[in-house]
Design a protein around this nucleic acid. Structure first.
Lengths: 331, 331
DNA sequence: ATGGGGTGAGAGAGCGCTCTCTCAAGAGAT
DNA sequence: ATCTCTTGAGAGAGCGCTCTCTCACCCCAT
């Protein structure tokens, strides 16, 4: 026994298929009593429109691809913001009655699949989460005739509207806080330099140090705890007298705290630490982490709004959200 | 200019639409030269099959709903396993050429939407992640005529095959480890008792204590760090002489460690701590956490295989994966 | 030369829906 | 009483694809 069709609903309600369709799609040109008869038939039969048939004729799919273009290992590994961004975007999209198709583009093969899928018109729009400079996907997708928005400024200049947080300003605020605390040997653990967030946060650090006539001491990590721990050991070797470190994300800061502890440095007495992201774990480090909060949830929501407005032919202006310094005990 | 259709491909290759369709779908009853001609036409036109039209006739969609039935705040908040499970499932499904439709069912309204969507035949199957006893979704979905598999044993007995890890055995191993270390006042911070994982891990704790003739001391949390910290304070108040605590997940263990630190207890000297899950953060606590590892990635992959085998009419036996005690410094 | 079997390709009917076009019926204007 | 206009509902043409049926053709056995 197959699912009831619009035809069946129409038959039961004693009207034509066209009228039943009008009721389903909420058109107003249907007399109230007929409308009720159709609604009753729908209810009795448990009718649900067949979306394949519908999108075949409307050329819309009411679904949005959420493309995460990152090596699988890093994504999700346990950086919470990916998950938060996905959740927030999902909630907002469901609010707008769009389905979310999740696509992971972790390598060349899956890149090709994603491109083919998008080109195939399976979705009405694309939300792209890609933080890597070398990623070919943003430019590839921007060539397709599909609305695309990006979470985070695309590394290569490409005509895709995006939503990002103020990495530069946030980093400046964090480092300035260290300067104001009287710290003079301020190092940084930078993020990967093929990522915009990595670049911008390092640039913010450099700018403040230059303005304060302080020497910069840089180690580079890849945003994982492990890399933060390694980078911190390296910095301590390079300059044992450092008295502060600005870490480009909280996960690396957690690793850095561990290295500092193992090296016998007290935080913040000997070395002050500022992180970036304000993940939940930042409250539970020893000591709790001073860090820069940026609104992941709002950023994802703003991205959804941007995409929806694109559908309406609205403006495609990038959105930059502010960051906020959260002072705890580490600095 | 719209997308090329099969008709266009057929015309360019000088064959009928049916033959072009045969080539696209890899049927073997096409002569090699004609096949090549069609493939060339496809390539030249950049043809991509219209999935709506295809699934209209095949009655398949090649997509799978990944339904996460949890209050939004808890999901993803920063428990990494949700994200890991999603990633792993996605990778496996993409391998099998299925699309992943992500659906969040956080409240009654979204439950209804999910049910409607599934009932609407938009997907070929459902992977359900639901850890709550009171959740009506498992039974609701099991009534629909759609293959459903569950991540984690459904709380209400319902005819859905599932994949789970050995919560009971894992908890037993963890508590037994504490007993073997000579601990005698062993408390537990249990998980929420409306969740199977919470129940089973508590049951494992109880069983070992009973077998060892020790008294149980129980506080209940909700699997968040915060609740772990609160529960630990409470346990210390209830019985200041406790010398070990088995915590039902690592996130709560992190909170418990913080409370122990604030209370001036040394870990593991004064109080030994065992967690559960072996999240990445467990390596970075002070001291690093002894915990029970369970294979989230494999579990998700097994769930996908289970669903795919269901499509083939294969067996629907639940799968239980083992856990492993990882000994670090906290116990 | 005839018939049977196998192979490769085309014709055409739908899958379930939307939407334009058409038309009937009744209200109001002349 | 006739005509125009509005409103409500039906007819029917597709959307792009798959798949069954049908048939043309060639090879080999008789």
């Amino acid at each position: 026994m197959r699912r009831p069709t619009l035809e069946a609903v129409a038959a039961r309600a004693g009207v034509s298929r066209a009228t039943a369709s009008r009721v389903v799609n909420g058109q107003t040109t249907v007399a109230p009593d007929i409308r009720d008869a159709v609604l009753r038939a729908i209810d009795e039969l448990g009718y649900v429109p067949n979306s394949a048939a519908r999108s075949l004729v409307t050329q819309r799919t009411d679904s949005i691809a959420l493309v995460i273009s990152e090596p699988g290992t890093r994504v999700f590994s346990d950086d919470p913001w990916f998950a938060m961004a996905i959740r927030s975007a999902s909630v907002e999209l469901e609010e707008a009655n769009k389905q979310v198709v999740l696509m992971l583009a972790s390598n060349a093969k899956s890149h090709a699949r994603v491109e083919r899928y998008i080109a195939g018109g399976h979705v009405d729009g694309v939300m792209l989460i890609s933080m890597h400079g070398a990623d070919p996907l943003p430019s590839a997708l921007s060539r397709l005739r599909v609305p695309v928005v990006s979470y985070g400024r695309p590394a290569v200049p490409v005509n895709i509207p995006y939503v990002d947080n103020d990495n530069l300003g946030g980093a400046e605020a964090g480092v300035r806080h260290l300067v104001e605390q009287g710290r003079r040997r301020i190092a940084t653990i930078a993020g990967p330099q093929d990522m915009i967030a990595g670049q911008d946060r390092l640039a913010g650090y450099r700018k403040v140090l230059r303005d304060s006539d302080l020497r910069s001491i840089v180690a580079v990590g890849d945003f994982t705890r492990e890399s933060g721990a390694i980078a911190m050991r390296q910095l301590l070797g390079d300059d044992p007298s450092l008295d502060a470190v600005f870490v480009a994300n909280d996960l690396m800061a957690v690793g850095a705290l561990q290295s500092l502890r193992l090296a016998g440095r007290r935080v913040p007495d000997d070395v002050a630490v500022v992180g970036f992201d304000d993940i939940e774990a930042a409250k539970y480090t020893e000591p709790p982490l001073t860090t820069l909060r940026h609104p992941v949830i709002e950023q994802a929501a703003a991205m959804v709004r941007l995409l929806l407005s694109l559908f309406e032919g609205g403006p495609a202006e990038p959105v930059i959200l502010p960051t906020e310094l959260v002072i705890r005990e580490s600095a």
